[in-house]
């Protein structure tokens, strides 16, 4: 089992969708929100995802396909 921490950025269009609920339903992962701020213009969620490494990868891919910005909790580390 692996644990990964992500900073997710939600565009306006996705705010009304239960994106994180589906993550736990469609993939064999456990999600745990630590901090978030979402309003009608979009928002962000700091999320922990626990599961097999490949399963986490698949979950992350699905988030990206939906248009969610997926970064590590550290944001951008390439300078």
């Amino acid at each position: 089992m692996a644990v990964r921490r992500y900073h997710l950025t939600f565009p306006k269009e996705l705010v009304t969708e239960p994106v994180i609920y589906y993550l736990g339903k469609d993939f064999n992962v456990i999600t745990n929100i630590r901090r978030a701020n979402v309003d009608q213009d979009g928002g962000w969620v700091d999320l922990e995802i626990e599961g097999d490494e490949e399963e986490i990868e698949r979950a992350v891919e699905s988030l990206k396909r939906k248009g969610v910005g997926v970064d590590p909790i550290e944001r951008q580390v390439i300078e």
Binding site: V70, D71, P72, I73, E74, Q76, V77, I78
Partner: peptide, 13 residues
């Protein structure tokens, strides 16, 4: 791609 490199570095760390 850029995001993949970025994520890899955090995982390596």
């Amino acid at each position: 791609n850029y995001d993949e490199v970025n994520r890899l570095c955090v995982e390596v760390a």
